[in-house]
Design a protein around this nucleic acid. Structure first.
Lengths: 237, 237
DNA sequence: CAGCATCCGCTTTGATACTG
DNA sequence: CAGTATCAAAGCGGATGCTG
């Protein structure tokens, strides 16, 4: 809530979304629109007054919008504004940057199934040419998530009842291993950290997905060129 | 310093760089490597113990590296690690997102000339085909900055003595106006918020730069398609 | 209940003084 | 110069209370 008082775009952005919990609120609303209690559930540990404060602040900054449903339902729905949606790809990139710290496993960290919608975007967000069309349901944690590959492009969403080709029931870190290519379906089955149900071709598609993700994650380019200046660093995405 | 304890890439990233001041420290080191005093100067208002804490934390997380120069010089140099450099394009995107809040002008916010290195990357980071090669020195605030256009690609750096085609001496918000295309050189001169010295072709190049930036900033795409799902949002960069 | 607001103990931050 | 030490103020987390 305290401004940096700097004439700098980054500082101004952080004045808006730099406070504790604020970006995670945006994450929740990036995954789906939420009622107050959905937000509370997706942000374990947040104080209720803080959540209310942050929502007010985000609304007044035009990042989120609030819709009051009429009395019979009586629910307040929060969702990202158009401007807030422009933030989503940045949060995905940040999440990708932070994923290196997820390899140590889950520990006793909180987990929600819906976060896999974000994780799938992080790991499978691009470069899937050649992977056959496939639909995968992932059941880890509270909510199932569906990943759909269609003509080389991936979409992930909260699970619905639509039929899928493959169903994965696994621990959160096993799911991360599978999607990031660090853990093969065969090995996951052998270690009994995942139940994978579906035809062989779909299991192969899952393997292919993991391989693509691994190819993007492992080979941290050798930075032997001098790219200490800003524009060059900014270019090498 | 307090972890969110969530098994989520974004939360893990914020555990590392989500604390107050931390991203701005990364910003300073993205612009150039720094000694302690450079960081203090670039982060007006930071408490010295906080800066020391953050630097320790960033080093232990592998985001920055510290080099101790031998006694005669006796300076400690901080710079981004390879992993820290992967964060820079994300900070640039965040700064771009936050730039909409810079249009209200500078107010009594702090300003450092070197921040224009970041601002130039934000505004002119791409799509400059057709702009003639030109070198521009900007003098606003304490340190001059040089922008160089070369074959459709922009590089910005702290000012050196290399000759330039155009020199701009202006207030910080006038510089932002010029680079973002909201303020034409002609109008800036008329309002006496900028001195622009150089040949007519270079002034036209500056105008062209502003036009490119404006073309990317103004036309906030009409979001009439339903892109509330995560992957679609993530795609529309 | 959902959606906050209030209170309280604790932690983090900001400002300043101090040290090798 | 490059930090460390100290302390008041602000922010946060947790519990609880209020209101439609």
């Amino acid at each position: 809530v305290r401004s940096y008082h700097q004439y700098c775009g980054l500082a101004r952005a952080l004045d808006v979304i730099g406070d504790r919990w604020t970006m995670l609120i945006v994450r929740e609303l990036a995954i789906r629109e939420c009622r107050y209690r959905d937000l509370r559930d997706g942000l374990p540990g947040i104080a209720t007054n803080l959540l209310a404060d942050r929502l007010r602040q985000l609304e007044s900054d035009g990042v989120i919008e609030r819709e009051e449903a009429p009395p019979p339902v009586g629910a307040t729905i929060y969702r990202l504004s158009p401007h807030g949606r422009r933030l989503v790809p940045i949060l995905v990139d940040l999440a990708r940057w932070g994923t290196v710290w997820m390899t140590q496993g889950r520990g006793d960290d909180e987990f929600r199934g819906r976060w896999l919608v974000l994780a799938a975007t992080v790991l499978l967000g691009q470069a899937l040419e050649g992977v056959p069309d496939v639909r995968i349901r992932i059941e880890a944690g509270d909510e199932p998530v569906v990943i759909e590959i269609r003509r080389g492009s991936m979409a992930s969403r909260l699970g619905d009842r639509a039929p899928v080709d493959l169903t994965i029931r696994a621990t959160p870190d096993a799911v991360m291993g599978l999607l990031s290519g660090q853990l093969s379906p065969r090995r996951a089955r052998r270690l009994r950290v995942a139940e994978i149900e579906g035809p062989a071709w779909a299991v192969e598609a899952l393997t292919a997905l993991g391989d693509r993700a691994a190819a993007r994650f492992i080979p941290e380019r050798s930075d032997d060129v001098d790219d200490r200046s800003l524009p060059q660093s900014a270019r090498d995405r």
